[in-house]
């Protein structure tokens, strides 16, 4: 039952997860600055903090925070002010169930995956609120684009996850990692492999495409397309609230990568490492995998232009969703009939 210790435990875990989120988001911002720079033959941040300009994200955050917190005239100020909190809270909530090691997880929900889908859909709400309340046509259009995009890609995302759940037989993220760690016996050979290598490659591709779309990053960054809508639903935001959106965006990138790493790449687990070692090295293993995926997302951004809204919808409804459905069917078939 609920006791005082329960609450202490909750508070400590929330603080830890919050720290993890903000810390990793800052690292992601720094990584984006540096990775993009080097891909574009630039140096990137160099001065702030001395060596390699490591303090650049902090300097950026500080600079943003000290700006005036503007609420546009004619805006619905309550909604306008609340929107960034919803986005950040929804992103933060996803960190709760991500297992960093067999024991280091804020809360291992039985419904982990289901919870993730439910909570991440709240981001859309915050974005729509931001777009509508700004009293700006660009913002409204950006918000609508974002919502249309998030709805369209929630479906393939969910279907890709469903395929994993079918294979793992559980919705708990820890359970999914354990399912990947469990050895499969093919002939006389007993080996354990991440889901990516055991039939989930299609799901993985769909998941990554959909998550890039959910994150509104290039090539799917139409909601904030600066050459069209100046900054989309972020146009009117400044100061702390902008920083929150900004942090939220990168935190979402981390959390999406973490989910992908957990679902497809084995999370905190890698082959040939003992259970006890995983207890200690689990977080590092997961972070390494996250970094890989984040780098991949950054790489895409440095390479591609953005699509058009109708092309994006086209891609979701005409390609990704049918393929994802088929994929679920195939995997369910294998699960039920073959194994």
């Amino acid at each position: 039952m609920i006791t005082g210790w329960f609450w202490a435990d909750v508070i400590v875990k929330v603080i830890l997860a919050l720290a993890a989120m903000i810390g990793m988001a800052l690292v992601a911002i720094y990584a984006e600055l540096k990775v993009m720079s080097h891909m574009q033959h630039r140096i990137g941040p160099y001065y702030a903090g001395g060596r390699w300009g490591w303090a650049q994200p902090f300097a950026d955050a500080l600079k943003f925070i000290q700006k005036e917190d503007l609420v546009p005239e004619g805006a619905d100020s309550t909604v306008f002010r609340a929107a960034p909190y919803i986005v950040v809270a929804a992103t933060f909530a996803t960190f709760v169930v991500i297992p960093f090691s067999p024991s280091l997880v804020a809360r291992d929900l039985d419904l982990g995956v289901f919870y993730l889908l439910a909570v991440s859909s709240l981001t859309t709400l915050g974005v729509l609120m931001a777009g509508w309340s700004s009293a700006n046509k660009y913002s409204l259009m950006g918000g609508l684009r974002a919502a249309g995009q998030l709805i369209a890609y929630e479906l393939p995302l969910a279907l890709a996850v469903v395929a994993v759940v079918v294979q793992a037989g559980t919705m708990s993220l820890v359970g999914i990692v354990e399912a990947q760690a469990a050895p499969i016996t093919i002939g006389g050979l007993s080996i354990s492999l991440p889901f990516l290598l055991t039939g989930q490659i299609v799901s993985f591709v769909i998941f990554m495409v959909a998550s890039v779309a959910e994150l509104s990053r290039i090539p799917f960054d139409m909601p904030i397309a600066e050459s069209e809508l100046t900054m989309g639903y972020l146009t009117e935001y400044s100061s702390l609230r902008f920083t929150m959106f900004f942090l939220g965006e990168y935190a979402a990138m981390i959390s999406m990568s973490a989910i992908a790493a957990t679902l497809f790449l084995g999370g905190y687990w890698i082959p040939f490492v003992s259970e006890t070692a995983l207890l200690y090295f689990g977080p590092f293993i997961l972070i390494a995998k996250i970094s890989l995926l984040v780098f991949f997302i950054l790489w895409i951004r440095a390479t591609w232009p953005r699509l058009r809204e109708d092309q994006l919808q086209d891609m979701a409804w005409r390609w990704l969703i049918p393929i994802a459905l088929l994929n679920v069917l195939v995997i369910a078939f294998f699960k039920v009939v073959v194994f």
Binding site: A225, A302, T303
Partner: peptide, 16 residues
């Protein structure tokens, strides 16, 4: 022009 379509990298490579 690619920048208008959202691609940032060509800008640096070409302007260099």
């Amino acid at each position: 022009y690619p920048l208008e379509l959202g691609a940032t990298t060509p800008l640096f490579h070409v302007l260099r």
